[in-house]
């Protein structure tokens, strides 16, 4: 394990994890809104502080992590995550509670992850994407639970066929993945119930 792995996590783990959880919860409860994550952490690149904050908050030995190719290529990332969360790093996306994705444009299809079962739709992966840009009030039109009438959200980069993928995901309901989009210290949520139009 190199020294990067020992770079610190949250300074005040209890309170910062609570703050990060609240941000993620609000994001999923109100799709289209941007929430602020506590990101005063310096994880080994290309793990972004936002991805790291969400992993620190929600992953542990009962909730394994999956890393996309750019993250998996840097051993210090897995070392840092293991050290701070105790989570197993899995190579099969279907075993992951959370998938950390540093390169959203190149991410695999949703079928590479756990989609849940009809009787246990909660047993599905949450995908956490590190975008470069995230903006509320512009871009995609969102409707569904958590949204008063409609909301707008712009995120990039995303896979070209993201809309088609997300709609196919919605058609599986109650099964399906849920998506968290991050950029800088912001997080937005796209639960499987959200309907997206261009």
């Amino acid at each position: 394990m190199d020294t990067l792995a020992l770079a610190p996590g949250f300074a005040d783990p209890v309170i910062e994890a609570q703050g990060a959880f609240r941000a993620v919860m609000e994001a999923l409860a109100r799709p289209g809104t941007l929430q602020r994550l506590p990101v005063a952490i310096a994880p080994p690149a290309p793990l972004t502080p936002a991805l790291a904050a969400i992993a620190l908050t929600l992953a542990d030995h009962e909730a394994p992590l999956w890393l996309d190719v750019p993250l998996a290529r840097v051993p210090a990332v897995a070392d840092w995550l293991r050290f701070h969360t105790g989570a197993r790093i899995v190579t099969d996306g279907c075993e992951a509670a959370f998938a950390l994705i540093a390169d959203p444009a190149g991410m695999p299809g949703f079928e590479a992850f756990a989609l849940g079962e009809q009787a246990f739709p909660d047993r599905s992966t949450t995908l956490v994407l590190a975008c470069e840009r995230l903006e509320s009030g512009a871009g995609l039109h969102l409707e569904g639970p958590g949204i008063r009438e409609s909301a707008r959200l712009a995120a990039s980069p995303l896979p070209k066929d993201f809309l088609a993928r997300f709609r196919a995901n919605g058609a599986l309901f109650p099964r399906g993945v849920d998506v968290l989009l991050t950029a800088g210290d912001r997080v937005a949520g796209l639960p499987r119930t959200t309907m997206i139009r261009e």
């Binding site: 994890a17 609570q18 929600l58 009962e62 739709p121 949450t126 958590g146 119930t193």
Partner: peptide
């Protein structure tokens, strides 16, 4: 404890994503 909170927090997030389940 934090371990318990994480487990409950994960359940809450899935609950929100699957309303009423």
């Amino acid at each position: 404890d934090e371990q318990t909170k994480r487990m409950i927090r994960r359940a809450i997030l899935k609950g929100i994503a699957i309303p009423g389940y």
